[in-house]
Lab assay of single mutants.
Amino acid sequence: ARCQGVVCAMKEAFGFIERGDVVKEIFFHYSEFKGDLETLQPGDDVEFTIKDRNGKEVATDVRLLPQGTVI
């Protein structure tokens, strides 16, 4: 199932997405972002798939959504 959220933090090689369905942040590695990383910034709406890696939830297949998609 695809989830939606808003990019809330960006570091050197990874970032965090504030999920739209639950009050929780989820980790994503930049290699999982399908698009131009140069244009990705905090506040952007994205959709993603949640996978379990070593007992921790991570966002994979992260894709940009049109602004205003995530309420």
Rank of each mutant, 00 (worst) to 15 (best):
K24Q: 06
G43Y: 03
D21K: 07
T49N: 07
F33Q: 00
F14K: 03
M10R: 15
F28P: 02
E57P: 13
M10A: 01
E18N: 15
V6C: 07
G35T: 03
K34V: 13
M10P: 00
P42R: 10
G68E: 15
E47N: 04
F28M: 04
K24S: 07
K51H: 08
G20Y: 06
V7K: 02
D52C: 10
V22P: 13
L65I: 09
V22E: 06
Y30P: 01
T69N: 10
F33K: 00
I50G: 02
T39A: 12
F14E: 06
Q41H: 07
D21M: 09
E18V: 03
P42S: 09
R63V: 12
G5R: 01
L65G: 08
E12C: 09
I17R: 01
E47Q: 15
I17T: 01
V62P: 01
A9C: 04
L37V: 13
D52I: 10
V22A: 14
R19P: 10
K56T: 12
F16R: 07
D45N: 15
F16K: 07
A9V: 04
D21L: 05
V7R: 01
V58Q: 09
V62N: 00
E25F: 06
R19G: 08
C3M: 15
E12T: 12
I26H: 05
K51D: 12
L40E: 00
E18C: 08
V62W: 03
L64P: 14
L64F: 07
Q4T: 15
D21Y: 05
T69C: 13
G55K: 10
F16P: 00
V23K: 14
I50C: 06
V6W: 08
V58A: 05
T60Y: 04
K56Y: 06
S31L: 05
K56G: 10
T69G: 11
K56S: 13
G5F: 02
D36K: 15
T60E: 05
F14C: 07
L37N: 05
E32R: 02
V62G: 00
F27P: 13
G43H: 02
F16I: 09
D52V: 11
E18I: 15
R2M: 04
A13G: 12
Y30M: 06
V23C: 11
F28A: 01
K56N: 15
I50D: 03
I71Y: 11
E38P: 08
T49G: 06
V62L: 03
I26T: 06
V6G: 02
E57C: 09
E38N: 12
G5A: 01
K11Y: 07
G15W: 00
R19F: 11
I17M: 01
I50W: 03
G5K: 00
K11D: 03
R63W: 07
H29S: 11
N54V: 05
H29C: 09
N54E: 08
F28G: 01
A9I: 05
D45W: 06
G55E: 06
R53G: 10
R2W: 05
D52R: 14
L64K: 15
V58D: 06
E38C: 08
M10Y: 01
N54R: 14
R53I: 12
G15N: 01
K56M: 11
T39F: 09
F27D: 04
F33G: 00
G68I: 05
Q41Y: 07
C8I: 11
V70K: 13
G55N: 12
V23F: 11
G15D: 03
L65P: 01
V62T: 01
K34A: 10
F14I: 05
G43V: 01
S31N: 12
D61N: 15
A13R: 13
T60I: 06
F27R: 08
C8P: 03
A1I: 15
F33V: 05
F48T: 03
E57M: 09
K51T: 10
K34G: 08
I71C: 09
P42A: 15
E12M: 04
T60C: 14
R63E: 14
L40P: 00
M10T: 15
R19W: 08
A13V: 08
G5H: 02
L37M: 12
E12K: 11
F27L: 08
D21H: 09
D21F: 04
T69E: 14
D21N: 10
G15Q: 02
F16A: 08
M10N: 00
E57H: 07
K34E: 13
A1H: 14
E57D: 11
G5M: 02
A9G: 05
D61G: 09
F33C: 02
F48V: 02
F14Y: 14
K51N: 08
F27V: 14
E12I: 05
H29F: 12
R53N: 15
V7H: 00
E25D: 11
S31H: 11
E32A: 03
F48S: 01
V22M: 14
L40G: 02
E57V: 12
F28S: 01
T60N: 05
V7Y: 03
Q41K: 12
D36F: 04
L37W: 14
V46T: 00
G20L: 09
F48R: 00
I50F: 03
K34Y: 07
E25I: 10
L64R: 10
R53D: 14
S31P: 04
A13T: 08
I50Q: 08
P42I: 12
F14H: 14
T39C: 12
A59M: 00
R63I: 10
T39M: 10
F33Y: 13
H29Y: 14
K11T: 06
E57T: 10
A9P: 02
G35W: 03
E25T: 13
Y30R: 05
D44L: 12
V6M: 13
Q41L: 07
V7L: 04
G68V: 06
I50Y: 04
D61E: 09
Q4E: 07
K24T: 14
D44E: 07
F28T: 01
D36Y: 04
G20M: 09
D61Y: 03
F28C: 00
E47A: 10
D44F: 08
T49H: 06
D21T: 08
R2E: 04
K11H: 14
K24M: 09
L40I: 04
H29A: 12
V70R: 14
D36N: 09
G35L: 01
T60L: 05
R53T: 12
E32I: 00
M10L: 15
D36V: 08
Y30E: 02
A9M: 04
H29I: 06
T49E: 10
R63G: 04
E25K: 12
I50L: 11
I71D: 15
T49I: 11
V22N: 11
E57Y: 05
A1W: 06
F14W: 13
R53L: 13
S31C: 07
D52N: 15
Q41A: 14
P42H: 05
Y30I: 06
G35S: 04
F28R: 03
G68A: 09
L40M: 03
D36Q: 12
D36R: 13
V58H: 10
K51Y: 08
F33N: 01
G5E: 00
E18R: 13
E32F: 00
V58F: 12
R2K: 15
V23A: 15
F14R: 03
D61C: 03
T39P: 04
T39E: 14
F33R: 02
K24D: 05
C3S: 15
G55T: 03
G35C: 03
P42F: 05
V58E: 09
